[in-house]
Amino acid sequence: MSRPKPSETVTRYLLLSLVAVGTLAPLAIVVLTAFKKPGAPVSGVSWPRDWSWHTFSSAWHAGQFGAAFRASALISIAVVAIVTTASIAGGYACATMRFPGNRLFFYVLLSGMVVPYVVLVVPIYIEFQNVHLLDSYWGLILAESGLYLPFGMFWMHAFFSSVPRSLIESGNLDGANSFRVLVQILLPIARPVIATLMMLTFLSSWNEYLVPLILDGSGRIQTVSLGLASFQGQHLTDVPSLSAAAIIVALPAVMIYLITQRSFFRGLLQGAIK
């Protein structure tokens, strides 16, 4: 293979660096601003004169983010558990078993993937109002699980379809029932794909705004996104506090992403590039 010319190498990495800077610059600006004193007038970007961590703690208390973290963590963990279990079970059945309607079930479940959330959440609101599930953890968990399930089904179905049939049949020959085949043969090799699904579902739930905005209209359960949005409403001109609050909300997701990114991308690219 031909070796790149030095000028070409410079162009390639220069272009990549430009895109990377374009991606990071807005975030760096917000980080810099968060280190200014709460309430300080801010115009444009400038280097903070005295770095103040105080803005973070004052925003944390003023926005009641402690309670919001607990609420969002509880919802996210429950949604990840439900979506992962249901997607593995449903994807496994539709991809590897033959029974009347297995393709129909799959396409019916999948159709939920192309419909904008707003289209579903307005009707969900009307239903939940009648069965008293508004402003409740159960309602939020159930609604988010339903909205993320079609993608999870699609994701696991794609994985189980790619498994060689001989692997499943060898398990059947040994007399293992379908549940043992799933647990002992398939799940161990599915681990990167499942881990990525869990990560994507966690990010969706932690960052979800539309669902709690509509189904938790009273604001009784303050999730991190609702908390940040109402914090913005109360501190429109206090740019340092607003920046600190944005970072507080983003930090858990970014930390988990940075820690798990190696296996996350392995599963993501394995799932998306087939």
């Binding site: 990071l24 996104s225 607003l242 944005a246 997701a253």
Partner: peptide, 19 residues
Amino acid sequence: ILFLPQVLSVVVVGVSWRW
């Protein structure tokens, strides 16, 4: 780096860009 915006809450993105 390139995937980072996908990890952020849209509310975080909106609040940041608005300012």
